[in-house]
Design a protein around this nucleic acid. Structure first.
Length: 775
DNA sequence: GAGTTTGAAACT
DNA sequence: CAGTTTCAAACTC
C-alpha cells in the first residue's frame, strides 16, 4: 500500500506541512469527502480543550471518536486505505500522536490525544511507522491480532493503544498502561465468560480498559494506589467529573454500534458524533448509515440522560467501578453501608421497622446510589441534644465518615422510641443500626456499628456555634480533636452510672466507650440488662425521653433558602433558660442550633437562631399543636414524632435512612448558612426520595431527631399525637415496610384520623377521643 | 485543671 | 404540678 510514504515522514511536527503535499493526502482528497469533514473536525479538539475538568475527561473518549470516524472515512476512501487504516491507523497513527504528546501531562495528554487523533484522521498514514516498534510488547500483543485491528481500530482499541504508547515514554502513562492492561485483562476475562472472545467482547474489553484508564487519569494518581478511590471519596472531586466517569464506566451498549458506544463515553460530542460517525458506516460492524443515524439519535437521547446525571455523586462512580470490577479499590462508604446491610440481613430476628426495610437490596443499592446519596451514609444525625448533629458540609461528612467511632448502640427491645422507625432517617447510621447491632459484641459491631455522622456533626456544630459566638475557646468537646474525640460521644458521668439522661451516651442510646471518662459506668454491653431496664423505666416516665428533641420546620418546603432560616427547626419541648439568655449551650435550643419557640419557657430569650417571639407562626400553629388543652408537653413531642414518622414512613428503609441522614444533617437555622451544601443537598435529595416532598421539607427531623432506641412493638404508645405539617397539610399516615406493632399502628391510624387539617383547631372532643383510643 | 454556672433530669 | 435536688455539661478563671 501507499503507507511507506508516511513512514518516511521525519517527525510528527513536520507532518502537517508535508502532509498536504503527500500523495496520500491528495489521494484522499480526490476520492472522498473526508477532507472537508476532517478539516472541520480537526478544529474541534480546541473546543474540547476548552471544557472544564469534566469535559476534560470527556475529551479522552473523544480520542476514540475521531478515530472511529477516521476509520470509517478510510473505508470510503478505498479498500486499501481501509485495510491500512484498520491495521495501522489505530496503532501507528495514534502512537505517533501520543509520541508527540510525550511530555504532556496526563490530563492534557489526554486532551491532546484527542486532538492528535483528529489530526491523524487527516494525516492518516503519514505517521512514522517506527513508532509501532516502540510499542511495548504488551501493547503489541493487544494489537497483534489483525482482526482486532481491522474491526476495532475505531472504537476502543485505539485509545488504548494510544495510552499505552504514551506510556512508553511517560511514566504516568506507563502507570496507566499497567492499570489499563490489568483492568483490561480482568475485564477481558470477565467478558470472556459471556462467550468466546469474540470481536465484540474484545471491543468491549478495550472499552472497559479505556474507561478504566480514563477513570484513573481522572484521579491523576497512580492507578495502582489503593488510596486512589479513598481520595476520590475524601477529596472534593468535581461531581461532574465523577459523574462523567460513572457514565463512562457504563458498559458499552451492545445494541448500538460503535457510534453509540462512543457517545456513551463522550456524550457531549454526540452531536459531533452524528456528524462524524453517522455518515460513515463502520466497517466490520456492518451497520448501515441509517442505523448509525438512529443509533446516534438514541445516543443523543442517552446523552441527555447521562448529562442529567452529571451531578451524581462519587458514590455512583464508585458503585459503578465496583460493579464493573474495574478496580479493587475500597469504597469506604459502601463498606459501611454494606456492613449495615449485612448486619441487617443477618439479623432476621430483628423485626424493627428500622432494619427490615433495609434488607431490601434494592433499597440498599438505591441508597448507595442515592446521592449523597452517598454521603448519605455519612451524616448521621444526633440522637439527643447531646448528640445534636451539626449540620455538615457534605465534604466534611465525607471526609469524616472514615473517622468512625465504633460504638455499640443500646438495643432497646421495649423502648418506644418509635422514632427509630419514624425519625430514623435522620439518625446516624450507628443509631439506625441499633436494633441490629444491639446486643452484639463489640467485635461484632466493629463492622456493623459505626457512629459517624452524629458525633462528627456534633463537633461540627460545636465549631459552628463557636464560630457563631466568635469564641474560639476550647471546650471539652471543642478542644477535642474534632475528627477523633468528637467523632465519639463521651461522657464524664460520675454519679449517674451513665444510666440517666444526664449521660450523653445513654441519652443518645449509645453505650459508653473508651473515650468516656465516666465512673462506675453501667452503660455498657455487659450490663445490657440493666441498661435496658433503666431505659424502660425512663421511658415509662417519659415515652419520648429518647426521642428527638429538635425538629425541623420550614415554611417553604420548596425554598432551599428556607433551610437556612433559624426558624426552620425547633426544639420540641423548648428550653427553660433563665440566665443564659438562650445564648449558650446550656440552652438546648441554642445547642441544637434552633431558635426558641413558644414551647420555650425561657426568660430573656436572645437566641440568635430565633427568639421565641418570632416563631409562633411556624411552630405553635403549624407544628406543635396539642391534642387537647390538657395535653401534656408530650403532645408536642408526639406531634414531632408524628411528623417524624411521616417523614420516615414513606421509605422506611435503612437506605432511606442513610440517605436522609445525609439529607438532613442538621438544621441549623442561622448556622445552617454555614453549611449550605449540606442543607441544599438535603432539600434536593429529600424530594426525590420521598414522595411527599413538600411535606417533608416542611418539617424535618432535626439532627438529634432520632431516637437511639429501636422501634419495638412493645413500645409505649404516646398518649396523644397530633400533628400537621407546617403548611397545615394533613399528615399522611406512615407507611411501613415492616409491620409495626399493631397497637402503635392502630394508634397512629386513630391519630391520623383525628388530626385536623387545621393545625390550631383540634376539637377537644377529638382530642379526648384520641386519648381514649390510645389507651 | 479546678471551680462555677447553668439548666435538664430526677425526685419529692 | 410545683418545688427541690441531683447531675453533668458548659463555662470561667
Amino acid at each position: 500500500m501507499d503507507t511507506p510514504d508516511k513512514k518516511t515522514q521525519p517527525s510528527p511536527s513536520s507532518l502537517l506541512p508535508k502532509f498536504e503535499d503527500s500523495p496520500v493526502f491528495s489521494y484522499i482528497s480526490n476520492l472522498s469527502p473526508i477532507m472537508p469533514f476532517n478539516s472541520s473536525h480537526s478544529g474541534q479538539p480546541f473546543h474540547v480543550l476548552g471544557f472544564a475538568s469534566p469535559q476534560g475527561l470527556q475529551s479522552s473518549p473523544l480520542t476514540i471518536c475521531p478515530d472511529e470516524s477516521k476509520i470509517k472515512s478510510t473505508t470510503h476512501v478505498s479498500d486499501d486505505l481501509k485495510d491500512e487504516c484498520s491495521q495501522n491507523a489505530g496503532t501507528e497513527i495514534t502512537s505517533g500522536a501520543s509520541g508527540a504528546l510525550a511530555s504532556a501531562t496526563l490530563h492534557n495528554q489526554e486532551l491532546h490525544k484527542s486532538d492528535s487523533t483528529r489530526e491523524i484522521t487527516v494525516r492518516e498514514t503519514s505517521e512514522p511507522s517506527e513508532l509501532v516498534s516502540e510499542l511495548p510488547e504488551s501493547l503489541k500483543d493487544d494489537n497483534d491480532s489483525p482482526d482486532d485491528n481491522a474491526v476495532h481500530c475505531g472504537t476502543g482499541k485505539k485509545p488504548d493503544c494510544e495510552f499505552n504508547m504514551a506510556g512508553t515514554e511517560i511514566s504516568p502513562a506507563k502507570i496507566i498502561e499497567g492499570v489499563s492492561q490489568d483492568a483490561g485483562c480482568s475485564l477481558e476475562n470477565e467478558m470472556g465468560v459471556q462467550g468466546t472472545p469474540s470481536e465484540e467482547n474484545k471491543q468491549e474489553c478495550n472499552w472497559e480498559r479505556f474507561i478504566n484508564e480514563a477513570s484513573d487519569i481522572l484521579n491523576c494518581q497512580t492507578p495502582a494506589d489503593d488510596d486512589h478511590l479513598e481520595e476520590l471519596d475524601d477529596e472534593s472531586i468535581d461531581s461532574g467529573t465523577l459523574s462523567f466517569v460513572a457514565t463512562v464506566l457504563h458498559p458499552p451498549n451492545k445494541n448500538i454500534d460503535g457510534t453509540q458506544k462512543l457517545e456513551s463515553v463522550c456524550p457531549l460530542i454526540s452531536s459531533e458524533k452524528q456528524d462524524v460517525a453517522v455518515p460513515f458506516s463502520q466497517p466490520g460492524v456492518g451497520k448501515s448509515d441509517e442505523k448509525s443515524q438512529l443509533a446516534a439519535t438514541e445516543a443523543s437521547a442517552l446523552l441527555a440522560e447521562k448529562v442529567l446525571h452529571y451531578s451524581s455523586t462519587k458514590a455512583e462512580v464508585k458503585s459503578f467501578s465496583q460493579q464493573q470490577q474495574m478496580t479493587r479499590r475500597r469504597c469506604l462508604v459502601y463498606e459501611m453501608s454494606g456492613a449495615h446491610y449485612r448486619k441487617l440481613q443477618s439479623d432476621p430476628d430483628d423485626t424493627s421497622p428500622t432494619s427490615e426495610p433495609s434488607t431490601n437490596p434494592d433499597n440498599f443499592n438505591e441508597s448507595r446510589r442515592g446521592g449523597h446519596k452517598f454521603s448519605s451514609v455519612l451524616p448521621g444525625i444526633g440522637l439527643h441534644l447531646n448528640a445534636l448533629a451539626a449540620t455538615s458540609r457534605d465534604k466534611i461528612i465525607v471526609k469524616r465518615r472514615t473517622l468512625t467511632c465504633r460504638r455499640q448502640l443500646i438495643r432497646s427491645p421495649c423502648t418506644m422510641s418509635s422514632f427509630d422507625a419514624f425519625t430514623s432517617d435522620t439518625r446516624p447510621i450507628s443509631t439506625q443500626m441499633a436494633p441490629d447491632t444491639a446486643g452484639m459484641s463489640c467485635d461484632e459491631q466493629t463492622d456493623a456499628v459505626q457512629v459517624t455522622g452524629n458525633v462528627d456533626q456534633n463537633s461540627i456544630f460545636a465549631e459552628a456555634v463557636e464560630s457563631h459566638q466568635n469564641s474560639p475557646k476550647k471546650k471539652r468537646r471543642k478542644s477535642d480533636n474534632v475528627e477523633e474525640a468528637e467523632s465519639c460521644k463521651r461522657c464524664n458521668c460520675k454519679r449517674s452510672k451513665c444510666l440517666k439522661l444526664y449521660c450523653e451516651c445513654f441519652a443518645a442510646g449509645l453505650y459508653c466507650v473508651e473515650p468516656c471518662n465516666c465512673q462506675d459506668c453501667f452503660n455498657k454491653p455487659i450490663h445490657e440488662e440493666t441498661v435496658l431496664e433503666t431505659r424502660r423505666q425512663i421511658e415509662s416516665r417519659n415515652p419520648l425521653a429518647f426521642a428527638p428533641k429538635v425538629i425541623k420546620c420550614s415554611s417553604n418546603p420548596h425554598n432551599g433558602d428556607e433551610l437556612n432560616t433559624p426558624a426552620s427547626a425547633r426544639h420540641k419541648q423548648g428550653c427553660n433558660c433563665k440566665k443564659s439568655g438562650c445564648l449558650k449551650k446550656y440552652c438546648e435550643c441554642f445547642q441544637g442550633g434552633v431558635g426558641c419557640s413558644v414551647s420555650c419557657r425561657c426568660e430573656g430569650c436572645k437566641n440568635t437562631f430565633g427568639q421565641k417571639e418570632g416563631i409562633e407562626g411556624i411552630f405553635e400553629e403549624n407544628v406543635f399543636h396539642k391534642c387537647a388543652p390538657s395535653a401534656s408537653s408530650h403532645n408536642e413531642d408526639l406531634a414531632a414524632v408524628e411528623e417524624n414518622q411521616d417523614h420516615a414512613t414513606p421509605e422506611p428503609s435503612i437506605n432511606l435512612r442513610a440517605r436522609q441522614a445525609v439529607r438532613r444533617p442538621f438544621h441549623f437555622g442561622g448556622i445552617a448558612s454555614q453549611f449550605p451544601s449540606t442543607l441544599q443537598s438535603c432539600t434536593t435529595q429529600k424530594s426525590d426520595k420521598l414522595g411527599e416532598t413538600s411535606f417533608e421539607e416542611d418539617l424535618e427531623v432535626g439532627p438529634e431527631d432520632e431516637a437511639p432506641t429501636a422501634f419495638n412493638r412493645d413500645c409505649t404508645v404516646p398518649s396523644c399525637v397530633t400533628s400537621t405539617s407546617p403548611n397545615s397539610k394533613r399528615v399522611s399516615p406512615p407507611h411501613y415496610d415492616l409491620e409495626p406493632s399493631p397497637g402503635w399502628k392502630s394508634c397512629r391510624k386513630l391519630i391520623l384520623k383525628s388530626i385536623s387539617s387545621i393545625p390550631t383547631a383540634i376539637p377537644e372532643e377529638k382530642a379526648t377521643e384520641l386519648q381514649g383510643g390510645l389507651r
